[in-house]
């Protein structure tokens, strides 16, 4: 269980020399910091930078700290940040169980892993879905699998990039509840980018308007 705080210290991102975004913030465990603003303001770029995927042409300064560790020094795969996009992005060549197992750290016997997958599916109300083709799932089911895949990777913090924008209104509330409950329960510092004020209100944390 992570109890570290995610801190963005004087992050400045420039594009071709022009300053794009400047942020300093601190996100406590279990807290959701929402970044709001119109498109093009650089909020998704900031998220990409935190995750380690700053696109070509952008430069960033400042520090990203998670507890004592400086994430900026780590390659993306070692940062252990849970990344959720607006699309669930379930790998189409793997079945549902395979997608979940992909997120799980290596180790354990085949059977243990299978059982862990089954428990996780049960947890999100999809018991018995392990061998299903992700393409046959409904939008809500896919979103839940994507969330569970991230959680099984045991992240130390969460990065949410407009995670609910493509869901129907009914599903959207349900997913918000599910995501924020897990964030609170696991004490994950969370950075969310959105342009939907309802997302920010549901998160209940501080809001930075860009």
């Amino acid at each position: 269980m992570s109890t570290a705080t995610l801190r963005l210290e004087e992050i400045v991102i420039t594009h071709d020399g022009h300053p794009l975004i400047e942020v300093s913030a601190s996100v406590a465990p279990g807290e959701v910091l929402t970044l709001m603003g119109p498109s093009g303001v650089g909020k998704s770029t900031l998220l990409a930078h935190v995750a380690g995927f700053l696109p070509l042409g952008f430069r960033a300064s400042g520090h990203i700290l998670l507890g004592d560790s400086d994430l900026g020094c780590l390659p993306p795969e070692q940062r252990r940040l849970g990344l959720l996009f607006q699309d669930p992005l379930l790998f189409p060549h793997l079945d549902v169980g395979g997608n979940l197992a992909f997120g799980m750290p290596a180790g354990g016997s085949r059977r243990q892993r299978r059982e862990e997958v089954a428990t996780a599916l049960d947890d999100i109300g999809l018991a018995g879905f392990a061998e299903r083709d992700p393409a046959t799932l409904s939008g809500g089911q896919r979103a839940r699998v994507a969330l569970m895949r991230v959680l099984l990777a045991r992240p130390r913090a969460m990065l949410l990039d407009e995670p609910f924008s493509k869901l129907d209104t009914g599903l959207r509330d349900e997913m918000r509840r599910l995501v924020f409950a897990r964030v609170h329960r696991d004490g994950l510092p969370t950075l969310m980018v959105t342009h939907d004020r309802a997302d920010a209100e549901a998160a209940g944390g501080p809001i930075i308007e860009l």
Binding site: P76, F85, P92, H93, P155
Partner: peptide, 28 residues
């Protein structure tokens, strides 16, 4: 879509794993 490999990397997959287990199979 670059997000495929970003998702895989953020789930802890090394570059080799992203290449072999995500990119190659998806581009069969």
């Amino acid at each position: 879509d670059p997000r495929w490999r970003q998702v895989a990397a953020s789930l802890g997959a090394s570059p080799a794993n992203v290449f072999l287990r995500i990119r190659l199979p998806m581009l069969t």
